[in-house]
Design a protein around this nucleic acid. Structure first.
Lengths: 319, 319
DNA sequence: TTGAAAGCGCTAACAA
DNA sequence: TTGTTAGCGCTTTCAA
């Protein structure tokens, strides 16, 4: 910058201002500085700015990417979420630092101006962990679980209720829920599901399924049919689980949807293209990502932000 | 650091060294400094280090996350790739800066010590774009296309050959390839496919399909059957395309696999759980991510790195 | 094994 | 509208 200043015949601070489009600098001067910068291939030094400004213009996004059995963040969802976040953040000069829970130890991550946590984890353990990092934080997960935190999530209760209402409309009377209520989002889905069913005097069976794989869904349904052969409707906490469930149903000679109705969650391409095409509760992950990004940014910039619930709707297909 | 130095009764530079585990500092001194740092909740300032060292300890990963029709990076693959990259990079102190092609303008991205590009784009346009950023770069894509670049990719030619060999073994004689050779990886798959078939005197039909959606696959197959009703084997450049193809085949009254064999690419969960379960060429994205990470790191640290091809294998299922 | 001095490149505060 | 001064927090000489 000092060199540019010399060449352009101004002071370093003027160069700094020109490059930042400060209104304090004459349009002509700015143009000249910019030209010179261009011409000499000047490269701005972010570290120096960050040092001076005490910020990093960086938001850490915590995702669990490890291939684990209990892999909630598989499929295209986190990528959509990440897409929304990245789009919104980069359009305002922030960068996205991708990290896992373990990454909290990295200096770069510690220096992030804010954190977005994707998935609060079973029993909110991930959330508590990240909270210890002491940065402005926004979470994607179950909104109802945390008054004290800023959480963006889709309306899981409504999602559950939609599934229940659909089953009622179809005349089903022995529904089951497949999922693990230890995860706040799933607990909300079950709550909405149960509450809506209760209005019709129905209590769902709810075996805990703590993996999110096709296999887990199939196993759970095999066990379920053994204990409750009269089940006629299955609401799964994810499309993957629903697909496993359908497989098990067919293996046991039940027809879908004639004998048993099945509703999944997430409206994933996997479910949409499955045979039979899966009825599923839809959530818009890209919008969610944008919203998460706006909220951390607000927090970082000292404004306040509130939790928010995104609408959800049922996509009726064959099952 | 200066404050810590005072409290610990040493100089700032000693604190610096102690915190970095420098061998130049006495073990006792180090322990004392660390204790004090811990106790006072000292937070290391990355920007200052980066300013001094002229590096950012950051690697930009360029992914196309925008929801476009031609969305090569959909599905779980990029997340696996990202998982492998993140795991490897963070274990050596680097952070992952997630960005898109447009993100190249961001100061943080420009400051990255290296770049990993996921997918070279049609006609390698993405690659040329990123190359202009002037940073050490490693690309995930078609290895054979670029002598001058460091590319990691799976063995697409072998993948194509595996599909061809399978068709031959099944006695198929009128195969087609579905995909867009403008993308280097797909061109390689087609090359391997054609070459292996040529050994049996067979030339595949290869209509260009430039979208990567289920719908595109279906449309392409409808058109294909119109022109070439005798087709008895379909090799698709992705599982999504293969699934669309199967749908169209069934709509036209062909049985899979009795009348027409279908092989997809990527071995995605979507394909594996599809009905009928899709035969597909498998690639290991996590390993690939780790490899990409190692190679940029080598480049950044002044070592040299070479392009590398990862093995590929056929997962035979029903189709 | 420890320390003193100097400076990385930027911008805020204050002057002119 | 422009410039001067100072300093953000770290690490690399070089010296002790």
């Amino acid at each position: 910058m000092a060199d540019l200043a010399k060449v352009a015949g101004v002071s370093a601070i003027t160069v700094s201002r020109a490059l930042r489009d400060s209104p304090l600098v004459n349009a002509e001067t700015r143009a000249r500085v910019r030209d010179v910068a261009q011409q000499y291939g000047y490269a701005f030094n972010v570290s120096a700015r960050n040092l001076k400004l005490r910020r990093s213009m960086t938001v850490a996004v915590v995702v669990e990417m490890k291939p684990t059995v209990e892999r909630q963040m598989s499929g295209p969802y986190p990528l959509d979420l990440l897409g929304g976040i990245t789009q919104e953040l980069t359009s305002t000069g922030y960068s996205v630092l991708l990290t896992s829970l373990q990454g909290g130890a990295l200096p770069n991550v510690r220096a992030a101006d804010g954190v977005i946590l994707l998935g609060q984890g079973a029993h909110e353990d991930a959330m508590h962990e990240v909270q210890r990092w002491g940065r402005p934080m926004v979470v994607w997960g179950a909104v109802s679980r945390h008054e004290s935190q800023i959480v963006v999530g889709s309306d899981n209760r409504r999602g559950g209720a939609l599934a229940a209402e659909r089953f009622i409309a179809l005349g089903r009377s022995r529904p089951a829920f497949l999922g693990d209520p230890a995860h706040g989002e799933f607990a909300e889905r079950l709550e909405g599901f149960s509450t809506a069913l209760a209005r019709h005097g129905i209590t769902p069976i709810a075996p805990t399924v703590s993996s999110f794989t096709v296999g887990a869904g199939a196993d759970a349904v095999h066990a379920l049919l053994q204990a409750h052969p009269q089940v006629d409707a299955l609401f799964a906490a994810s499309d993957l689980l629903a697909i496993g469930a359908i497989r098990a149903l067919i293996e046991r000679g039940r027809r879908v949807p004639e004998d048993v109705s099945v509703i999944g969650y997430d409206d994933s391409p996997l479910g949409a293209t499955y045979v039979p095409p899966l009825t599923s509760v839809h959530q818009n992950f890209i919008d969610a990502g944008v919203l998460l990004a706006r909220k951390v940014r607000a927090l970082i910039e000292g404004e306040d932000a509130v939790s928010e619930t995104l609408p959800t709707h049922l996509v009726v297909r064959t099952t």
